[in-house]
Nucleic acid binder design. Structure first.
Lengths: 203, 203
DNA sequence: GGATATACCGTATAGCCATACGGTTTTTAC
DNA sequence: GTAAAAACCGTATGGCTATACGGTATATCC
């Protein structure tokens, strides 16, 4: 999507209807044909990248399930997918962040933002519940606080990795993030998977 | 500052030189007299709120030290200061976030953003070191990963509290955040404070 | 093949924006 | 008191923006 290209290269302010059209190689009129207003265009773009990131994570999770890997490991991989650890994800992060920043003021964007976050949290909670069933998680643990916490560290870690891509105090960002995520998951996923009945759960 | 008022009421896009002047009750010319460009004005505003939030936290920490409270408790209070748990902090959060979103594209803003984050992280690390000295923290624990982790959860938690001010699954945001912060601090601060030599450490 | 819809274009326009500039008032310094 | 500096104002203006609009090509259907 041309919008994302512009955001990641020149910032959100550079996204004008005219420039977007030019970047996409079409005319202003055609953009108007597809989107009645600029906001509609932005909303569509936001929705687009949101679901794109989601699908990327879902795919990774699906693969993990098929290979019967421990849930904690699958989660770790999925969450790492949200960290700007390479050029691609860094670009993605910039775009998502720019949108999220705008979502503070534009209700239509905020809706998508909240919905995306909620869905992620719900899926993490489901993963914790699955963890209980197969013995990786203590049976009486409430999955929601854990899900909120895990979503929070991922979010916060992403920002830190973005700001200091080279890491902190000599420790590369990648390793630092991985160890923190592992530790964080270790708080919740304390046991080892016994058996996993692969139902249709997404996580 | 008029800039912040505009951002929190009408969003970042509403911040124009003319409107800022009107909000502040002065003329456009005077704004230009103080700031050569709009960017300069924005940068000043960002710097202003950054240090303001910082001072608020520092004060709370200073009070905690004077009352000889456990470092973990002081840290918890300081970090909670960053969460949008009431109207004031919610406004502050909006402003900070809007700036942070812009900082992705404007190098001058990014610099302030990074510097602020680094300072916070450094102070948390110092708190962990202090914790070691008085027995709250295991002596051989590396303070940096812990600091990164704690900064990350605070950041991420702030966003979640903002998005879902009413909490998750019936648990109010305030309690949820407090319990998560406590749990997170509990991972690092495992012991009890024996004695604390109140030096000039800021945390 | 004609009609209807959809894809697509280029230009016009009214509004808002940051900034430039020349002026006036107030304060400061001696 | 007076001169210099700082605070302060109001009005251009040129550029960029979203959007409106009228038109042309192209596909789709009967």
């Amino acid at each position: 999507m041309a919008v994302c290209e512009l955001i990641s290269n020149n910032g959100f302010d550079a996204v004008t209807v005219a420039r977007t059209a030019a970047t996409a190689g079409i005319s202003v009129g055609l953009v108007q044909h597809y989107f009645r207003t600029k906001d509609e265009m932005l909303l569509h773009a936001f929705h687009h990248v949101s679901t794109h990131v989601r699908h990327r994570i879902d795919k990774r999770i699906q693969a993990g399930i098929e290979h019967r890997r421990p849930i904690a490991k699958v989660l770790a991989a999925g969450m790492a997918e949200l960290l700007p650890l390479d050029a691609t994800r860094r670009t993605e992060f910039r775009v998502m962040r720019a949108f999220a920043g705008r979502a503070l003021d534009v209700p239509a964007l905020a809706e998508v933002d909240i919905e995306t976050a909620r869905a992620l949290r719900a899926d993490i909670a489901q993963a914790v519940r699955n963890g209980k069933e197969c013995g990786e998680v203590e049976p009486d643990l409430d999955p929601w606080p854990a899900a909120v916490r895990l979503a929070a560290v991922t979010d916060g870690l992403a920002l830190q990795v973005y700001r200091d891509p080279d890491g902190v105090q000599g420790v590369p960002a990648k390793e630092l993030a991985a160890s923190i995520l592992d530790a964080e998951l270790g708080v919740t996923f304390t046991g080892q998977c016994q058996q996993y009945d692969s139902r249709k759960d997404r996580l």
